[in-house]
Amino acid sequence: MIRGALLTLLSEGPKYGYQLKSEFEASTGAAWALNIGQVYNTLGRMERDGAVEPLGEDDEGRPRYQLSSAGRAELDQWLGGAVERSVASRDEVTMKVLMAAATGVVDPAGPIAVQRAASQRTLQDATAARVAAAHVADRLHLDRLIVTTAAELRWLDIAEQVLEGEAGEALRTERQQRQTSGRRSKSPATRSSAARSVKSEQGEVADNG
């Protein structure tokens, strides 16, 4: 990702390491401070791959780099391509809610309420910070945080509604069945002897009658 950003900056013309660092930070705001080591590491890898070429030193002795034609092609691919998002990435909030719902160790309403309050507070903080943010990059970072947090709140509402409804009822029934069959398979002997004792009690009552 940093590689794509550096290729973009180099497409404007030859640049030296520190210049890339400061231009990167000016474009992306306070959120993604870049240390100069990362810049040189990435430049080194890009040079190895033939994406950039060293252009000697400028008047002040700073080594400069320029984009190669291979680097240009890589940049076009990076900027022109879509970023794939996947549901497979494990989200911790989803994990907690699903675990609570599946096991009944706690009522899923608990983790949902706790997360809702925390997310709502994040949203309040981000909203206040956004109103005060001067730099357009910071505003857009905060906007992203705001909409993803708002999406999480929406998901919590949906999860709450789903788990309160028929789907939640089905989960509870499934859990009870699992627990019952779990007990049965663990100790069939105890269970059947218990059943026998009930029978024999009935038998005794019958005998007495």
Partner: peptide, 13 residues
């Protein structure tokens, strides 16, 4: 709203 809201740095780290 929290009395000491998280700042830009904390929010975006």
């Amino acid at each position: 709203r929290s009395a000491a809201p998280s700042g830009l740095g904390e929010l975006l780290s």
